[in-house]
Each structure stands twice: as structure tokens, then as C-alpha cells.
Design a protein around this nucleic acid. Structure first.
Lengths: 113, 113
DNA sequence: AATACATATGAATATTTGTTCATATGTTCA
DNA sequence: TGAACATATGAACAAATATTCATATGTATT
């Protein structure tokens, strides 16, 4: 960790002043981290078509119930999805429109190439 | 991995048909994965204020040159940033406006709460 | 109440990943 | 050309994480 070059001090201060707080940046990274897994993206993509129960997701993703439930728990604790029970089944859906928007932004970025 | 419930077959097929390809979804997850680290988010946030050389970033982030360079390499290979050399220094900047937009979307999501 | 079904969850394991340390590469200037 | 500076990079290690396996919880049905 070298010393700060005096001629950089100004631009560093200015940039720092314009950046969001460390707390916001850390939370932002944490949100993206949750989007940054193939299984979770597949789940979010499926749910963006409408709510779906766990076993439906397992069938669709061709993954074990346990693996899917674990990832649903991650998504839920990050508040990207919400759930409601109907009898024996639990239906999951995107928590709000914002989530679908973030997903779309990412997909568009990949598709435009 | 249980059998597919026959009554789910239709909704599963329909959902599948509307979802992006596995390849797109995997690439999307990979993009978000790169955004999903505090150091990289801090770098991207700094660069969204304008281009900056490596040592400036080290000073700003208060991190070792090696750690910063490693993350710059990750960001560059994911095409989120680009670089240009000027003398001994190398200046990094966001690769295109899209990157700043994705970053902003994430930050807004965190800030609105 | 007992059984079957749908989902959740703890522990263990294997893989991925971020930082550090040491060193290599490339540029400038004397 | 040699020394100093800016940056990159390989290897090693520690920490984080996704899946599996086994099992627990909660609901409906008989």
C-alpha cells in the first residue's frame, strides 16, 4: 500500500465525495451476488413468468428439491422473492417489479453483443 | 429428483418456452457474479465518476496494488472496463454506458428501502 | 391418529474465489 | 544501459458457497 501521490489527492477526494457510502456499496454488491449464480438466475427467470410452486421449479430446472429449496431460501432472505402457502404447496414469486427489472437489464446486456 | 407431476407439465413447458436460453442465463449469472463483490463494486463506482489510473484506485480504495490489479483483470476480462496506457500509467474506465446503468439500477434498489 | 406429501434445514463436502506475497513485464528518465 | 516507477501475474492460502444426504416440519387425507 503505497503513499498517496500528492497530485492525486484532489481527484481522489472529489471522487470519494461523489460515491455512495461504503454501506450502500456493500449492500449493492450483496444484491448482485445473489443474482450471480446460475441456479438462482434460472429461478428468477422462471418466476418472472409468474408464481410457481417448489416442485414445479424442481421439475423445470431438473434439480433436486433440496438444492432448489436452499436457493429459494437465499433468494427470500435477500428479499428478491416472496412466498405464500396454498395447502401443501408453497408458491414463490418475485418480490417486486424492481427485481424483474434488474434481471432484464442483465439479460439485455448479455443479449446485445 | 421426483417425477414430473402431469398436471404441471403444461405450465412447465410454457414457462420454459418463454425463458431465455440456458446459455444466456448462464452468461447473465456470470455478469452479475462480477458485480457481486464489494471491491469490484467500489472500483466500478469510482470509475463511473471518470477514468482513473491504478495507483489512484489503490489510494482511493486503500487496498494493495496487487489486490486492485487482480480485480481490474477480472473486470476487464468480463468486459466491464477497458484500459488505455499513458506513459507509465494505465487508465481504466467503464467499458460502455450499459455498465454504469446496471450499477445504478443496483444502487437504486438498495437505496430505495 | 397415522400416513403420505410438500417443503425446509443442518451438517458435510467439494469447489470457487479474494487477498497476499513474490516476482515479472513494460515504460521513462538519467 | 541501468535504475526507478507503474502495473500485471502466478502460486499459495483462507474464506465463502453450492450441492448432497439425511432428516425435520407442516399440511391434507383417510
Amino acid at each position: 500500500m503505497a503513499d498517496i501521490h500528492p497530485e492525486h489527492a484532489h481527484i481522489i477526494e472529489q471522487t470519494k465525495a461523489n460515491m455512495p457510502s461504503e454501506e450502500i456499496l456493500e449492500k449493492t454488491a450483496d444484491v448482485f451476488k445473489v443474482f450471480g449464480d446460475k441456479t438462482r438466475i434460472r429461478i428468477l427467470s422462471a418466476l418472472s413468468e409468474g408464481e410457481m410452486c417448489v416442485c414445479c421449479l424442481c421439475d423445470l430446472l431438473e434439480m433436486s428439491q433440496s438444492a432448489v429449496s436452499h436457493q429459494l431460501a437465499v433468494l427470500k432472505s435477500a428479499r428478491l422473492i416472496k412466498s405464500r402457502r396454498e395447502g401443501k404447496q408453497i408458491y414463490y414469486s418475485l418480490d417486486d417489479a424492481h427485481i424483474g427489472a434488474i434481471l432484464c437489464t442483465g439479460i439485455s446486456h448479455v443479449e446485445e453483443d
